[in-house]
Computed example of a mutant assay.
Amino acid sequence: MSDLDSPSTPLDRHKTPNGISDRVALGIVKFMRVFADAFFSKRYGHRAVVLETVAAVPGMVGGMLQHLKSLRHIREDEGWIREMLDEAENERMHLMTFINIAQPSFVERMLIMFGQAVFFNAYFFLYLFAPKTAHRVVGYLEEEAVVSYTGYLAQVDSGFVENVAAPALAITYWKLAPDARLREVIIAVRADEARHRDTNHEFADALAKA
C-alpha cells in the first residue's frame, strides 16, 4: 500500500536481466503476457479478476516453502515469510475488489480454476528448485501489472471506462475517502504492485548473492 507519489516506487522501474535465469524468468512472463493480451485485449477489469487470482499464488507458495526451510534449518527467516504472506493477502484483496467491479463470465471462472491449478503446481516446483528465478518471475509479473493498471487508469481518465464508485471493501482496506471512485482504487492497487515488484526483485538479488 505504497504511495505512488513517493520516489521509492517509480512506475517505470525495470530490472535488467542478468544471467540466464533472469532471461528465462522474463521470457516466462512475456509468454504469459501474450495469452493475457489475446484473451482480454483491453478489458482491464476482467483481466484484473483473472490475473489477480494467479498473482495471489506466489506469496502463499513462497511463504510456505520459506516457513518449512526455517523449520528445517532452525533459523530465522529475516522477515521473508511475513512479507510473502502479506503479499498473498494483498493480492487476494485486489481480487475481492475487482470481483465487485467486473463480474467474471462463466468462461472466465473456468479459466480462473484452470489457471490457478496449473500455475500453483508450476510455481511450487519452480520455487522449490530455483527460488531466485521464482522471485524474478514475480518481479517481472509485477512490472507487467503496473503497465496493465496504468492502461486501465488511462481508460478511466479518457471516459472509455466509467469511473464507478469504489466498492466498500476497497474503501475500508485502503482507507480511501468515503466517496472514492474506481480511479482511486486503481492507483492504490498499482502502488501495491509496484511495491511487490521491488520486493521480489530484491529477494531475487539476495538469493543471487547467497
Score class of each variant (00 low, 15 high):
residue 67 H to Y: 13
residue 153 L to W: 06
residue 111 L to C: 02
residue 128 L to G: 13
residue 87 E to R: 02
residue 96 M to C: 08
residue 110 M to T: 08
residue 162 E to W: 00
residue 4 L to Q: 10
residue 173 Y to G: 03
residue 94 H to S: 05
residue 19 G to A: 06
residue 114 F to S: 11
residue 88 A to T: 06
residue 171 I to Y: 01
residue 21 S to V: 09
residue 65 L to S: 05
residue 30 K to F: 01
residue 82 R to F: 05
residue 147 V to Q: 13
residue 184 E to Y: 03
residue 203 F to C: 09
residue 20 I to Y: 12
residue 184 E to G: 06
residue 129 F to L: 14
residue 111 L to H: 05
residue 169 L to Q: 06
residue 175 K to Y: 00
residue 130 A to W: 06
residue 188 A to I: 09
residue 75 R to F: 04
residue 195 R to Y: 04
residue 129 F to W: 13
residue 28 I to S: 04
residue 205 D to A: 15
residue 108 E to N: 12
residue 157 D to M: 10
residue 52 E to D: 08
residue 102 A to T: 14
residue 13 R to I: 10
residue 111 L to K: 11
residue 25 A to L: 08
residue 204 A to P: 10
residue 1 M to Q: 11
residue 110 M to P: 00
residue 92 R to F: 09
residue 66 Q to L: 13
residue 49 V to L: 08
residue 21 S to M: 13
residue 21 S to P: 03
residue 150 T to E: 14
residue 34 V to S: 05
residue 150 T to A: 15
residue 29 V to A: 02
residue 196 H to C: 07
residue 95 L to Q: 05
residue 25 A to V: 07
residue 206 A to E: 11
residue 52 E to L: 08
residue 115 G to T: 07
residue 131 P to T: 11
residue 21 S to G: 02
residue 137 V to T: 13
residue 104 P to G: 04
residue 137 V to H: 02
residue 44 Y to W: 13
residue 48 A to W: 00
residue 183 R to S: 09
residue 78 E to F: 11
residue 76 E to P: 00
residue 23 R to F: 07
residue 119 F to C: 07
residue 200 N to Y: 04
residue 116 Q to G: 03
residue 125 F to I: 14
residue 104 P to M: 10
residue 202 E to P: 00
residue 168 A to P: 00
residue 110 M to S: 09
residue 63 G to F: 04
residue 85 L to P: 02
residue 59 G to Y: 05
residue 74 I to R: 13
residue 179 D to A: 10
residue 135 H to F: 14
residue 90 N to Q: 14
residue 20 I to T: 15
residue 87 E to K: 03
residue 139 G to K: 03
residue 130 A to E: 05
residue 194 A to V: 13
residue 195 R to L: 14
residue 145 A to N: 10
residue 180 A to T: 09
residue 132 K to F: 00
residue 180 A to D: 12
residue 151 G to L: 10
residue 194 A to C: 12
residue 37 D to E: 15
residue 145 A to S: 14
residue 80 W to L: 15
residue 206 A to G: 04
residue 28 I to R: 01
